[in-house]
Design a protein around this nucleic acid. Structure first.
Lengths: 206, 206
DNA sequence: ATTATAAGCTAATTAGAATTAGCCGTCAAG
DNA sequence: CTTGACGGCTAATTCTAATTAGCTTATAAT
């Protein structure tokens, strides 16, 4: 990774831990292993570093299509997989999804940074909203909707069912971001949540 | 309200909008209608203002016992009320609870501030966790648990049922904090969530 | 070989914000 | 009435952190 990217990388780490205003260009430079003024050979100023992070993130998200989605592939494929799954493998899938978003380094740091900075400007609030609300709900809604039309799940209100699927995941993710030592506990709740979700909306009741 | 409290009040407003580091003591003073150096007649320094806000909040929470609880009264009383309610009045109750936490000035500003500052130090993370996770889940869990033992609701896993009740409320609250103009939309989802929750766990299925 | 460019460094400079010094008026207690 | 605490003000002061200036080296293209 070249210096220019190292800067973004280290800056993101620091911003996600302390927030933009509490990170000094000096801190960033130190981590990268250069002196602060050298940063200016790569970026116009501190703000430009922040902006570049947002830009990079936007392009990553473009490729990715959906953030908190099931497999990262297209929903039709996901639904096909899901259809033939039993409860246990569904839980495994949910858990590995959760763990991916919890541990994937980039995703995680970016999420924490956005959490801190979301109130700074309207645009960031909107990015957050897209990433952790619109996109997961719409993608997962599509997926779960397919499963409903295939009779795997039963409901007359897919969006709310999707909310019931996703909201606990979101909540548990925020818990782990803030107190990583609760991960085990959160995973246990996640598992029970998925099991219960399956029982409520799944084949059994149908 | 005397100057000392006005300072806390205005500081909280500013901190909740921009975060501690982006607020200058000058901004606070201006809002209060005094000059910056005069602040130091009341508080040792900027950090002391922040600390005083946390302290005040802690004492408010002491009185309050539970944050995102049902009526703010004791759970036994709440459960008694809830038992004799129909779906519509339950939804009304849920909505007014949600709106209280969404609009109550102090609660709202404090929540936003904590959201921004939660990663600064371990202690704040813990306060956040208590307020928006432990307390609501334990209080509401007690309440819903009573309803289960009275046969109003049916489940074999009260904590998860509680998570299913609360997580969507929490998610919708964070949506409105970040984009207040979506309040209407969020309220509609809230209502559907409560209706669906009632159908899933409530009398009908029982 | 020469030169332009990229990327680093040290040493200022600038700018912004927190805090301190020190003065003044008010008012309540003695 | 007078004194001391309270709370306010203006004018420094200090600190910190971002940024700029200007020098140096390495390398790649001409």
């Amino acid at each position: 990774m070249d210096t220019k990217h190292r800067i973004l990388d280290e800056a993101l780490t620091l911003f996600s831990e302390k927030g933009y205003a509490n990170v000094f260009v000096n801190d960033i430079a130190e981590r990268v292993g250069i002196k602060a003024p050298s940063l200016y050979k790569h970026y116009k100023n501190k703000q430009a570093i922040f902006d570049a992070i947002i830009d990079e993130m936007n392009s990553r998200f473009m490729e990715q299509a959906g953030s908190l989605n099931i497999s990262g592939m297209d929903p039709t494929a996901d639904a096909a997989i899901y259809k033939n799954m039993n409860e246990d493998s569904m839980i495994e899938l949910g858990k590995s999804l959760f763990l991916y978003y919890l541990h994937d380094d980039y995703t995680k740091r970016f999420r924490k940074m956005l959490t801190i900075e979301q109130f700074h400007d309207k645009e960031l609030a909107h990015v957050y909203q897209q990433q952790y609300f619109e996109m997961p709900l719409s993608y997962q809604g599509m997926l779960l909707g397919l499963m409903v039309s295939q009779g795997v799940l039963v409901t007359d209100n897919v969006p709310i069912m999707t909310l019931h699927f996703y909201a606990p995941i979101y909540l548990l993710l925020t818990v782990c971001d803030r107190e990583p030592e609760r991960e085990k506990e959160a995973l246990k709740m996640l598992e029970e949540h998925l099991r219960q979700f399956d029982r409520i909306y799944g084949r059994t009741i149908a």
